[in-house]
Design a binder for these strands. Sequence first.
DNA 1: AGCCCATCTTAATAAAACCTTAAGGTTTTA
DNA 2: TAAAACCTTAAGGTTTTATTAAGATGGGCT
Lengths: 232, 232
Amino acid sequence: MSINILVVDDEQSIADLIEVYLRNEGFTIYKFYNGQDASRCVESEQLELAILDVMLPDIDGFTLCQKIREKHKFPVIMLTAKEEEIDKITGLTLGADDYITKPFRPLELVARVKAQLRRFTKYNSPEPKQEERLIAFSGLVLDMDTHECTLNEKKLSLTPTEFSILWVLCSNRGRVVSSEELFQEVWGDKYFTNSNNTVMVHIRHLREKMHDSAEHPKYIKTIWGVGYKIEK
Amino acid sequence: MSINILVVDDEQSIADLIEVYLRNEGFTIYKFYNGQDASRCVESEQLELAILDVMLPDIDGFTLCQKIREKHKFPVIMLTAKEEEIDKITGLTLGADDYITKPFRPLELVARVKAQLRRFTKYNSPEPKQEERLIAFSGLVLDMDTHECTLNEKKLSLTPTEFSILWVLCSNRGRVVSSEELFQEVWGDKYFTNSNNTVMVHIRHLREKMHDSAEHPKYIKTIWGVGYKIEK
DNA sequence: AGCCCATCTTAATAAAACCTTAAGGTTTTA
DNA sequence: TAAAACCTTAAGGTTTTATTAAGATGGGCT
């Protein structure tokens, strides 16, 4: 399924901003302007991460954070205005995993969210690798650990090969990847007999599952004579 | 190999303070009390990071920041007084990487500087500079990675051969390239059969896509008896 | 083991996109 | 004015990619 993130901030503009940016990365957002509603959401939904403002009209962020910690292990990121610096230590020791002061760059927030998700999923898998294990951008989410893929919050069931190909394309998003390169990356084979046809067939299947087409590609584009490409 | 940091603040005491602390960490500091001098420094020196005050007597920090972003990727940290908070978002979206309000604790500044440098070098270290993969000059942009070509912000869709020819012409811009040379570079063939006609046809197509003409060439000029040339 | 199922590969064919050729026209040079 | 160099055009050939379906593989299950 998709990756669910809770966002709580009484400043609507900020909550909305966060929502836009994270949704753009393909995450599913549960957004609330107060602690009560958020608290209810924590119990009803299966969450992967929470972003909490410290200052809330009803319940404050710390309390909410503690409440989450009683039952869940997913990462919590706290938001705070600069002036509240004093409380930093308190917040962190109360179980928050990261801490962002306002104002923040949206992209930095996105980066931190991904970092936490990475860290969290890594926690549950014994693989001690440093490389990226989660790719999320423009509605696409690829999770190396669970081998799951989500497109616009809808799960795609991909075969291993399909997943690998999409992974390679996505981790090189914005640049053309040739069939040869794809073949090497996915099959690890240098001596590929003339049958990069295989790659093509898998691309075809991928496009099908993504409701994409070769003529009017929304995701996987063909660059004639060069290779395939996914836009940033 | 020292790490060069630009510091700009019209309040001399602050600039000096920053200098002391950062120098103490082993950084090399380029310190200025106005935007003009700083601007000049950006062009002449190889910088790793910049700390800019928002309020400067001549050029303001945001403008300077933008100017840096046009040509450089190193991190920029903005300094501002509390009262100027309103502009925060503006400043952040204009490309700054971090934001510190005055008054600040020097050690926090040092920490942030290090954080930015870490982030920056981390992003840049895995990909060491290779050969040119992007050519951009006078309205023309050729990107080898995306295989895209843009002319005056309008995308041209070129075939592989056309792209190659234009690439060769552009990477030799300012100098005449003969058909033979073009043929060798693009086709990699030494024994090119009697007619460079093929090259000519491709040039023709290129000119067409560039809305160029042989009679009044804006881009690809014919140097009679020698070859083709693109102006710098 | 033997069968089923999902997946992968191969192969054959179709459809694009692209490249080359050649023929005739135009401009430049001597 | 003729020869040489260049330009234009379009048809036919080639290469690359897409599609499809059938055969191969291999793991899981009875």
